[in-house]
Amino acid sequence: MKVKFVLNGVERDFEVKAGEYLLDTLRKHNILSVKKGCDASSCGVCTVLKNGKPVLSCSILTARCEGLSITTVEGEKAEVEKFYSYFGAEGADQCGFCNPATALTVIAMKRELKNPSESAIRQYMVGNLCRCSGYVAQNKAILNYLEDQS
């Protein structure tokens, strides 16, 4: 079946199977920033922005994306570069498998929350699992980014 949605600012047609998930469609179309980390919608590494809000692309049928706007880090290069300058400075990246998803979630948070407290930030990020960093350096980078860039 055919589905039309805006991917990273460009309206595109996608030929998909009925039961195909957005994660698989995106990876098939060379959007490799979205990763598959689990089978139970519980790790966060497949996060994309659906009309600006972070969602798990492993749980969304591509067929239901008709008319939506889907954004990945590939479509947020300038903002990701800005965020990375804080993230890298804290040495928060480590293996990086979750980093595109983390960046997208932070960018969405910046647009959604006004001056979030540290604990509000930690709550917002709760669905983005990271096994490497211990989170504290990440949270410090997020705080610095939000303070400077909001």
Partner: peptide, 10 residues
């Protein structure tokens, strides 16, 4: 990290 930004950019 030498590769951190490239990885974050996907």
């Amino acid at each position: 990290s030498v590769d951190g930004l490239g990885i974050m950019l996907g």
